[in-house]
């Protein structure tokens, strides 16, 4: 039997990668390689269709306003249906920062209503208030893990994201602003569709979460993955928690 492979599709890798999103992809790639798990990375840019069955994880990062608007329209027009089909069969969707905003139904940006792909029931509004910027730590509960875990990272968003009734956040804010700045909910998770404002190199600061994604993608329990020498990963996680004041 050939070894399992994690097949990742990066959506708009040119335009939606403003906050070092490649750090996330690099973590997945290296941690797969060190364990003898295959890793295949594809990209889909503007106008390019995606095959819902060809990938285990779809990644969507953040972009500058202008680029994000371009991608939003393209996402709905050329990729929306396939993403819904992929999510329905349990493929992972990880949307970070601007990506989180595009997961929902709309993003009100001044006079413009930017459409979203509607994988989850949320909407985002860019108000006149200050951008929500800073180190952040949230507590999350994920299937297959024995208890709550902490994700630590950095948030920087002008939009306030509101979840509809019945939609669950990814986690509870321990330190930082979260979706709306009230320090309550952070991100969103509906089954395998995950969105968060913890931007850019979220996975380098939280190697355990990279492993959870890898395990989920190949359909094994996270605890069964081969352990790695994670001393530096643990130290980086600890430093990110300290930076958030945890």
């Amino acid at each position: 039997m050939s070894p399992p492979t994690v097949r990742v599709c990066a959506l708009y890798p040119e335009l939606m990668s403003i906050y070092a999103d490649r750090g996330n992809l690099l973590l997945l790639e290296r941690r797969c390689a060190w364990r003898g798990i295959g890793f295949a990375l594809a990209g889909a840019g503007l106008g390019e269709a995606i095959d819902p069955d060809a990938h285990d994880l779809f990644y969507l990062g953040g972009g500058q306003d202008r680029d994000q608007v371009l991608c939003a329209h393209d996402l709905v027009a050329t990729k929306g249906e396939a993403l819904h089909a992929a999510a329905a069969r349990g493929a992972l969707v990880l949307a970070v920062c601007g990506g989180l905003q595009l997961l929902g139904h709309s993003y009100r940006l001044g006079d413009e209503d930017v459409p979203g792909v509607g994988l989850v029931d949320l909407h985002t509004v860019r108000g006149d208030g200050e951008r929500l910027i800073g180190n952040v730590a949230i507590e999350v509960q994920l299937p297959g893990l024995d208890g709550p875990r902490v994700l630590a990272g950095f948030e920087n968003h002008g939009g306030r994201t509101h979840l509809d009734a019945g939609e669950q956040p990814l986690g509870r804010v321990l330190r930082g602003h979260g979706n709306t700045g009230d320090g309550g909910a952070e991100g969103v998770r509906r089954h395998s569709v995950i969105g968060t404002y913890l931007h850019g190199p979220l996975l380098p600061k939280n190697a355990w979460f990279a492993d959870w994604l890898v395990a989920t993608a190949i359909g094994v329990e996270p605890g069964t993955l081969m352990p790695l020498d994670d001393r530096l990963e643990d130290a980086a996680h600890a430093a990110a928690r300290r930076a958030a004041g945890l």
Partner: peptide, 23 residues
């Protein structure tokens, strides 16, 4: 530095062997 560990991690994932990295 205050985020030395993350920088060392960056170098590790860039391909620097960990026995050459010191924090």
């Amino acid at each position: 530095g205050t985020r030395a560990a993350e920088l060392a991690l960056r170098l590790k994932y860039a391909g620097v062997p960990t026995d050459r990295l010191h924090v």
